[in-house]
Design a protein around this nucleic acid. Structure first.
Lengths: 222, 222, 222, 222
DNA sequence: AATGAATGAGTATTCATTCAT
DNA sequence: AATGAATGAATACTCATTCAT
C-alpha cells in the first residue's frame, strides 16, 4: 500500500515457477500434512510449499484453510462402495473367503493408500468439524457398515456363520481395519523398526480370529 | 483410572475460596480440552478458565503448554497393570471368562472414564509428539499388550485356546478396545441418538466373536 | 468537466468486442471507486472489472495503482477556467447575477458531474499524496480562487459590492461549493430520501445570503 | 505453536513498558492517524506504537480495527450541544453577535481541536461505514443544524434577520465551518506557509458576509 | 501464591504486480 | 494488445508466555 510519494521502490523481480498447479496437488499435499500434524498445526504455507506453489496460489483455489480441509475430505471419499457391492453380488467363494477378500481389498485400495489418513484425520478433528464428521459418517462409515453387514448376513443365510447380531458383528471387522489405519498414521511412524506392526500379518491373523469367531461350530461355549 | 483427588466426573464443584488450585484441576481441564479439540486448537486460557484459575496461574505449575500436555499424558498413565496382573495370577475361571472380564474391566476403569480420551489424544498427536508416543508405547501399549498376551497364552497353555500366534492374537482384543475409545471421543458426540453405538452391547458381541475365534473347535475351516 | 469520449454518465454501454479498451474507461471506473471508497480501500481488480477489462490490462496502461490515481486526478482537471474567464470578461449583467451564474455553472458543469468527486477524493487523500494536493491546489484551487476573486473585485470596482477583503471573501463562495461537493459524495448517498439536501435549493439560498452579504447597503451593522 | 520436541527454544526475554495504557491513549493515537491517512491506510501497529503500547495491547481493548474506528468516532462526539443550547437560551446580545460567537465557540472548542479531524474522517469514510455516517448525522449534524437553526430563527423573530428559509440558511453557516475543518486536515498541512489560510481571519470575514447576508436591509436586490 | 495486563512472534488472508501465453 | 494464473510482501489478528503487582 504505497501511499506516499514512494522513493522509487524496487518492485522485486520474482518468478521461477510456472505450472498448472492443479488443485489436486494442493489437496495431496494438504492431506499428508493434515494427517500427520492435524488441522490446526498445519500451516497453509507448508501445504503450498509442499505442492510447489506459493501461498497466494493456494488461496486462488481454496478460499480458506477450512475450505481446503473440506476439499481434502471430500476428495478422498471416492466411494468405492458401488464397485465393492457389485463384487460382492457375484462373489463365488465361501463367505469366510469373502471376509478375507474384503479386508485385503480395503487394505490394498484404501488402508495402504494415503487415503487411509483420512480416517485418522476425521477421528482427530471430528469435534472441531462436526459437520464433516456427519458427512463422513453418511458417505463412508454407513456404506462401509452396510457392505460388511451384507457379507455377514450372507454367511448366516448360507449357514456358514452363526446367527450373530449383524449390527454388532460388523464392528468386529470394522474395528480391526480402523485400528490398523489409525495405527499406521499415529504410532506407526514413530516405532522402532523392530516393533513395527506388520499389516499383512496383522490382517491375516486378526481376520482368522474374526472368521472363526463368526463361523458355525459344534463345540465351544462361554 | 480417574487419577486425581476429585472424586466425581462432574465439572468440578468449585468451593468458595479455592485456595491452592491444584495442578490436578488444571490437568483434568486440559485433558478434556486436548481430547476434544486437539493440542494446537486448545487455548491455555480455556484450560485455565475451565479449571477456575487465571492464565498466569497455569504457568505457575506448567512451564509451557507442551509441559502441560506431557503432564496430562503422564498423569493418565497410572499403570493399573500391576493390579491387573495380580488379578490375573489368581483368576479362578476359564480363560474365556478372563478375556471377557479383562475387557469389561478396561471399560469400567479406563474406557468409560475421561482417561480414555488419552488414547485418542495420543493417536491424534503422535506425529507431533513422537517422544510422548514412544513413552506411551512403553508405559501403556506394551504392558497392555503383555497382559493380554499372558491371558491368551494361559488359554493356549490350558488347552482352551488354539495355538494362535500370541503376538498378533493380542491385537484382536486390543483393536476392539482402542476402536471403542476412539469412537467415543470422535464420532460418538456427533452422532444422532438413534445411531449411537452402545458400548456394552458392542463389547459383549465383539468379545464373543473374539473368544470363539480363539477357542479350540472340532469343526470350522477356512 | 466530463472529460472522456463517453458522452453520458450512464455506466458505460459496453459494445460486444470491446477492442481497445481505452484507458479512459479505466479512469472513469477508478474515479468512481476512488471517490466512494478511497484510494487504499479500492482494489485495482474492482477497477478493471468495472471497466470490463482484466487486471493485467489495467497495468498495461498504468504502471502502478498510484499512477492510476494520478491519472484520475489529472484527467479530471481539464481546467475549464480559460473558458470561464472568457465568459467573465464579457459578462453583461450585474455582478450579483454573475456570482449566481458562476455558482450554477460550476454546479452544472462540475459539481453535478462525476468529476466533483475529485474534490472529495483530494481532500480525503491529501495527506497521503501531498504532491497531488499541491498539484491540485495550483491547477484548480488557485485558478478557481482567482476567478471568483476577479468577480468579486468587479463587484467592488463597479460599486455593487462593499469593499471587502477579496482574498477572504472568495472563501464565502468557495466554501459553499466545496461543501456541496463533499456532501454529495459523503453523506448524500446514505441519507434517507426525506433528509436529502436539495442542491438547487441549497445553491439558491446560500448564494442569496452570500450576495446580500457582499452587496453595498445603507443599513446593517455588527 | 511448538508442536515438536522443540530444541530448546529461547523464550525471548521481553518487557520494557509497564503502564495503564488507557484505551484513551489508543483512541487519541488512532484519531490522529485515521484522520491523516484514512481508515484503510492506517496500520493498527502504527496506532499501537503511537500510543506507546504493543499491537497485542490494542486488541486487548478493541476487538477489531473497525471497533477501534467506531470508538474513535463515538469518543469524539461528546455532545457539546446541551451546553451550547443553554448558552443560547440566555444569550444577551444581538443575534449577529450570537452567530459570531457560535462560530468562534465551535472553532475554539471543536474546529481548532483534534476532534475536528472527525469531520474529515467521517466525510472521507462515509461510504465505507454507512452506519457510522448515519450515527454521526443523528448525533452531530442534526443537533448542530438544529442549534444554528434556532439562532437564525431568533434573529428572524427579533426582527434582526430577514425572513429567510431557515432550513437552508443554516447551511450558510454550516458550510463555512465544515469547509474550514476539512481544509485544516487536508490542504492545510501541505500548503506553503505563505499560502496558509488563517482560520481567524477566515472566520471573521466569512461570518461577516453571512451575517450581513442574513440581516435586514433597506436596499439590495437581485 | 495468584492475577491479569502486556507482549510479540506467528499465521491466515489480501492484493498490487508480474509474466508466459 | 490482452489475459489471468502466479507471486509474495504486507497486514489484521491470535495466543503462548512474561512480569509487576
Amino acid at each position: 500500500m504505497l501511499s506516499h510519494p514512494s522513493p522509487a521502490t524496487t518492485p522485486a523481480p520474482r518468478r521461477e515457477r510456472r505450472k498448472q498447479a492443479r488443485p489436486g496437488e494442493l489437496i495431496d499435499a494438504a492431506l499428508e500434512l493434515f494427517v500427520s500434524k492435524g488441522f490446526a498445526a498445519t500451516r497453509v504455507e507448508a501445504v503450498a510449499q509442499k505442492a510447489g506453489v506459493s501461498k497466494g496460489t493456494l488461496f486462488l483455489y481454496f478460499a480458506t484453510k477450512e475450505e481446503l480441509f473440506k476439499a481434502v475430505v471430500r476428495h478422498a471419499i471416492v466411494g468405492r462402495f458401488a464397485e465393492w457391492n457389485a463384487e460382492f453380488d457375484s462373489f463365488p467363494g465361501s463367505t469366510a473367503d469373502m471376509v478375507r477378500y474384503a479386508m485385503r481389498s480395503w487394505w490394498d485400495q484404501v488402508g495402504n493408500t494415503r487415503a487411509s489418513g483420512i480416517s485418522k484425520l476425521i477421528m482427530s478433528e471430528a469435534s472441531n468439524f462436526p459437520e464433516i464428521a456427519t458427512f463422513y459418517d453418511q458417505e463412508v462409515i454407513r456404506p462401509g457398515n452396510a457392505l460388511i453387514g451384507r457379507i455377514i448376513q450372507r454367511g448366516i443365510d448360507r449357514g456358514e456363520f452363526r446367527c450373530v447380531d449383524v449390527h454388532y458383528a460388523v464392528y468386529s471387522v470394522l474395528s480391526a481395519m480402523m485400528f490398523l489405519a489409525m495405527w499406521k498414521h499415529s504410532f506407526g511412524p514413530c516405532m522402532p523398526a523392530a516393533e513395527k506392526l506388520d499389516p499383512d500379518a496383522y490382517l491375516h491373523h486378526v481376520a482368522d480370529v474374526i472368521i472363526r469367531g463368526l463361523q458355525r461350530t459344534e463345540g465351544a461355549s462361554a
